[in-house]
Simulated scan of single mutants.
Amino acid sequence: MKDSEILERISRGDERMLDHLYKKYYRMMTKIVLSNNGTEDEAKDVYQEALLAFWQKAASGKLILTSKISTYLYSICLNQWRKELDRKSRLSSEEVDREEYQTHDAKERLKIVMDCIEQLGDVCKNVLTHYYFDGMGMQEIAKKMNFANTDTAKTKKYKCKKKLDSLIKSKYTTEDFFD
């Protein structure tokens, strides 16, 4: 079937032409997306959108075709896929920026906490470091620090944590931790 006949039938509202075009150019059009890092589903979506855009323009009578239908559809698919890749690239870039910001922010908060822990003295520094950073339990800390028992280690950790909280609050504002 010639392109001129297809356009004529579309202008009369023959929806069978939509199915005809879909099947005729499916492989060619989806290959654009598949060969450019796209999935089968993305390829189908792009082709369906392109075919719908072509159909609407052709049915309205506003389409002046200066190339074959396949070339026209190909250019629509290619443009739509480029836009999608650009959108994905922007989203990916925003995610990387957000992750870098969060990582930097977490490092800054950790630095503040570590600076304050250093000012507490050796016992508090060791208890808090063992508990929060080394992941030790109270029994291990009591043994390593030569405390009488785990209750002593718990009490010491509690008091050191209170000292740390007070020191941080005296030197920094909430905004330093939560933007």
Rank of each mutant, 00 (worst) to 15 (best):
E95V: 09
K88E: 04
Q48M: 11
G38H: 03
I112F: 15
Y101R: 03
F54D: 10
E100M: 15
T39L: 07
R87D: 12
K107T: 11
E94K: 05
A59M: 00
D105T: 14
V46Y: 05
E108V: 11
V46T: 13
Y47E: 03
E99A: 09
Q56Y: 14
T39Y: 11
I76G: 03
I32W: 03
T71V: 06
Y101H: 01
K68A: 02
L52V: 08
L51H: 12
M29F: 13
E94F: 13
Y26L: 00
E40F: 05
S92P: 10
S70W: 11
D41V: 13
D86S: 10
Y25F: 15
K44E: 09
Y74D: 09
M17I: 07
L52Q: 04
Y72C: 02
K62W: 02
D41Y: 14
D105R: 14
E108M: 04
I32Q: 07
Y25T: 08
E15P: 05
L21A: 02
K88A: 07
L91V: 14
Q102A: 15
D41W: 13
V46R: 01
A43E: 08
S60N: 12
I76S: 05
G61V: 04
Y22V: 10
G38V: 06
G61P: 02
R12A: 06
M17P: 07
E100K: 14
K111F: 15
D45I: 09
Y26Q: 08
W55T: 02
A43I: 09
T71E: 12
L65R: 03
Y22G: 06
V96W: 12
L85E: 00
L63Q: 12
K24M: 07
T71P: 00
E42N: 02
E108Y: 14
K62P: 08
R82P: 06
S89T: 15
S11E: 11
L21E: 02
A106T: 04
T30A: 03
L51W: 13
Q56P: 06
T71G: 03
N79H: 07
K44Q: 08
Y25H: 15
K111Y: 14
D19H: 09
H20G: 01
S75T: 12
K83G: 01
K57F: 03
